[in-house]
Amino acid sequence: MANLNTTHSEHEEHTTTGLNNRKMLMWAFLGSDCMFFAALIATYVIYSGQIVGGGPVPEDVFSIPVTSVSTFVLLMSSMSMVLAYSALVRGQIKNFQIWILSTAFLGMTFIGFQVFEFRDFVLHGLTPKTNLFGSTFFVLTGFHGAHVTLGIIWLLSLYFFSLRGGVTPERHLDVDLAALYWHFVDVVWIVIFTVVYLLGVFPGI
């Protein structure tokens, strides 16, 4: 019997298409996640305007200026993610750490805004139980928030791992995957902001 050496085939350099396996996995996952948000957004759109039994409607609670700020914060986090990645591939670990930390921090700011907003809506009498608007709004944006939170945990893990020397330019894929995820979650928010907030308050456009 020959010796069977055991290593991860996940780090195989050679693949049929030349694309990395883990990267392809990430793309497949994001494709799936697209359908996830598509179904949630479709539910929101189908039910929008159908308020039975009273309670606040979008115009009553949304504050476009506030949410525009949080949207801007999330967009900036994507930019700092790009800077983190490019610092890493250039071998500037210190800069990488600064940018990845600021990405996570901007993400947390966004979540802070969301918590503030949820609290504000509840004070205005809108909970998930109030009406269809409440149910669809909180579940859709709540699941987006959960995605952002997972992303923050991922970014912070990368940061702490880098303190122990675990993040190197050769292993840039580890960061690349997190970045891909982060940008995706960001794009989903742009769609939500447009469909839910902007069209909710200015239905004419």
Binding site: F36, A39, P128
Partner: peptide, 23 residues
């Protein structure tokens, strides 16, 4: 592509049953 759709349907049903949403 198909499973996320039922995942969402089941989440909505679960929220109806557990947290009182009205989907």
């Amino acid at each position: 592509l198909a499973f996320p759709v039922i995942t969402v349907a089941l989440i909505e049903l679960m929220f109806d049953r557990t947290f009182g949403t009205v989907f």
